[in-house]
Design a protein around this nucleic acid. Structure first.
Length: 343
DNA sequence: TCTGGGGTCCTTACTCTA
DNA sequence: TCTGTAGAGTAAGGACCC
């Protein structure tokens, strides 16, 4: 049986800010957007003190300000978080080469081949991270990635939770359906409409029923995942599949010149990233989100891959030309996909 | 009244070609 | 030659993740 850890840093962005500014310790801190809660943006991370006011990730900053006028709002500083993240990832690799990077503040680690007891390895990792960075993390220990992920969330912050296949009915089934990775707000509502509120409620259904309700592929996933069954391997290397940039206006605009200027700028940004990755792209997609949040995309696939700003910008403008701007626009985006790495 | 940005993957529809 | 279809590629939208 494999031994998998899911390691998740506690309130990562907020905790890194507290390290830099110790006077923030114990205070409600909210990281998001430009750091100005009167402007457009959402919460990336709220400290545990801020969460007591009901502030949570993905919430509009303006809502967070209403809930917690005394919260300290700070801008997102990806460079600093990436620097700390690199230190943490290096520590993981001291314990196993089988590390799957899943975002700036979490990773899976396959420690099946460690000589000591798995709980001991997990404790060592927590101590190493705390010693090297001053930060705490929560770890889930399980026979697969899915259960490890659910487990790491069960005793936050600074937790260590072990879940075996024998524990699924007792520990996992009582949890809200939403706690199962892959069940988001839409599926949660769909399930509630069917009278299903917990992971156990999903597990009580037959595979035929789930597939009829949610489709072949997703129904199959729900059937297995709700039983703690998951056989996806640790993926240690990753190639980008698409590169995108988008921008939301502070004030919605119907000015075509302004939209065109934004599109040209975003395209040059995204082509810079493409070149940084030594890639060429074959498909260009333009995204327009209107003031009512209705979102349209138009795509153009080129005869062959390109990294020429001129070529990709022309394709982007061709896509924009296929969108009728009849309402004010709040967001413009450009995505490059069908990428090919240069030799 | 609000609802970011950067990704992945899936479904469905359509078109072209063997 | 005609017709039907399988499959690939493309396009658009949506759900989900951090």
């Amino acid at each position: 049986m494999p031994v998998i850890l899911h390691i998740d840093m506690d309130a990562f962005f907020a905790s890194v800010e507290v390290l830099r500014r110790p006077e923030l310790r114990g205070k409600p801190v909210v990281i998001g957007g430009s750091g100005d809660p009167t402007k457009r943006g959402v919460v990336s991370t709220a400290s545990y003190e801020a969460r007591k006011f009901g502030v949570h990730s993905a919430m509009p900053l303006r809502t967070a300000l209403k809930l917690c006028p005394n919260c300290i709002f700070l801008p997102v500083d990806y460079r600093e978080y990436s620097r700390v993240s690199a230190i943490i990832k290096k520590i993981f690799l001291e314990f196993s080469p089988l590390m799957e990077d899943v975002g700036i503040d979490e990773a899976y680690l396959d420690i099946t081949n460690r000589p000591e007891a798995p709980e001991t390895t997990a404790s060592f990792i927590k101590k190493r991270i705390l010693g090297a960075t001053g930060l705490t993390c929560s770890i889930g220990l399980a026979p697969n990635k899915l259960l490890a992920k659910i487990a790491s969330d069960m005793n936050k912050p600074d937790g260590l939770t072990v879940v075996g296949m024998d524990d699924v009915a007792r520990l996992i089934w009582p949890l809200a359906a939403r706690k199962l990775p892959g069940i988001g707000p839409k599926t949660e509502e769909h399930l509630k409409g069917l009278g299903i509120n917990t992971i156990g409620g999903v597990a009580a259904k037959s595979i035929e029923w789930l597939q009829a309700e949610f489709g072949q592929s997703y129904g199959h996933y729900l059937y297995e995942a709700s039983r703690g069954i998951h056989e996806s391997p640790i993926v240690t290397s990753w190639e980008p599949k698409s590169i995108s940039r988008e921008e939301t206006y502070e004030i919605d605009t119907a000015n075509w010149q302004a939209i065109a200027k934004t599109l040209a700028w975003l395209t040059s940004e995204v082509v810079d990233s493409l070149k940084d990755e030594s890639c060429k792209a074959k498909t260009v997609t333009v995204k327009i989100r209107f003031e009512d949040f209705k979102t349209l995309t138009r795509a153009k696939t080129l005869p062959e891959e390109s990294d020429s700003l001129e070529t990709l910008r022309r394709a982007a403008f061709e896509c924009l030309g296929r969108i009728r701007i009849e309402k004010r626009v709040r967001l413009v985006g450009v995505r490059l996909s069908s990428l090919k790495r240069q030799e």
